[in-house]
Amino acid sequence: MSDRRVAMRPFSWSSSGMFRDLLAGFVVLMLLVAMLRVMYMTPVSLYPAAGGAYLVLAAMMLHGRPAGQQHLGWANRVTLARAVLIVLLTAMLPQPTFVNDHHLLVFTAALVALMLDGVDGWVARRTHTESRFGARLDMELDAFFILMLCLMLVIQGKAGMWIMAIGAIRYLFVASAWRWPWLGSELPVSYRRKTICVWQVSTLMTCLLPWVTMPWSSLLLALALLLLMISFALDIAYLYAHARR
Score class of each variant (00 low, 15 high):
His63Trp: 05
Met60Trp: 08
Pro66Val: 01
Met60Asn: 13
His63Gln: 12
Met41Cys: 12
Gly64Met: 03
Ala58Ile: 02
Ala50Phe: 02
Gly52Asp: 01
Arg65Cys: 06
Ala53Gly: 07
Arg37Pro: 07
Ala53Thr: 04
Val56Trp: 01
Gly51Ala: 13
Leu62Lys: 04
Gly52Lys: 08
Leu55Ser: 03
His63Asn: 04
Ala49Pro: 04
Gly68Ser: 03
His63Ile: 08
Met39Lys: 12
Leu46Thr: 13
His63Arg: 15
Gly64Ser: 00
Val44Thr: 12
Gly52Thr: 05
Ser45Ala: 15
Ala59Glu: 07
Gly68Cys: 01
Tyr40Ile: 08
Met60Lys: 04
Met41Tyr: 14
Gly68Ala: 04
Ala58Asn: 07
Val38Cys: 02
Met60His: 10
Leu55Met: 14
Thr42Lys: 02
Val38Leu: 10
Leu46Phe: 10
Tyr47Phe: 12
Met39His: 09
Arg37Phe: 14
Val38Ser: 12
Arg65Gly: 02
Val56Tyr: 00
Arg65Ala: 03
Pro43His: 05
Ala67Val: 08
Thr42Tyr: 01
Tyr54His: 15
Ala59Cys: 02
Val44Phe: 14
Gly68Arg: 00
Ala67His: 04
Tyr47Ile: 14
Ala59Lys: 04
Pro48Gly: 06
Tyr54Lys: 02
Leu57Ala: 09
Gly52Phe: 05
Gly64Pro: 09
Ala49Ile: 02
Gly51Cys: 04
His63Leu: 14
Ala58Tyr: 00
Pro43Cys: 08
Leu55Gly: 02
His63Met: 11
Met41Ile: 15
Gly64Asn: 13
Leu46Lys: 08
Ala53Cys: 09
Leu55Tyr: 10
Ala59Phe: 13
Tyr40Trp: 13
Ala59Gln: 01
Gly68Tyr: 01
Met60Ser: 12
Tyr40Ala: 12
Arg65Met: 00
Arg37Ile: 08
Thr42Pro: 06
Ala58Met: 05
Val38Asn: 04
Leu46Ala: 11
Met61Trp: 11
Met60Ala: 14
Leu55Cys: 09
Met41Lys: 15
Gly52Pro: 04
Pro48Leu: 09
His63Val: 10
Pro48Cys: 06
Pro43Ala: 04
Val38Phe: 14
Ala53Glu: 06
Tyr47Asp: 11
Ala49Ser: 13
Leu57Asp: 06
Ala49Asn: 15
Leu46Asp: 11
Ser45Val: 12
Met39Tyr: 10
Ala53Gln: 07
Ala50Cys: 05
Tyr47Ala: 05
Leu62Gln: 03
Val44His: 15
Ser45Gln: 07
Gly52Gln: 07
Ala49Met: 13
Ala59Leu: 11
Met61Ile: 07
Ala49Gly: 06
Met61Thr: 08
Met61Asp: 06
Arg65His: 01
Leu57Glu: 12
Ala59Ser: 07
Gly64Arg: 03
Val44Gln: 09
Ala58Gly: 03
Leu57Ser: 05
Pro48Ala: 07
Thr42Gly: 08
Tyr47Val: 13
Leu57Asn: 04
Pro48Arg: 02
Leu62Phe: 00
Gly51Ile: 06
Leu57Trp: 11
Ala49Tyr: 09
Tyr40Lys: 13
Met61Glu: 08
Tyr54Phe: 10
Ala67Gly: 03
Met39Gly: 04
Pro66Ile: 00
Ser45Phe: 11
Ala67Tyr: 06
Val38Tyr: 11
Ser45Cys: 03
Leu55Ala: 10
Gly52Arg: 10
Leu55Gln: 08
Tyr40Thr: 10
Arg65Glu: 00
Pro66Thr: 00
Gly51His: 03
Tyr47Met: 02
Leu46Cys: 13
Gly52Leu: 07
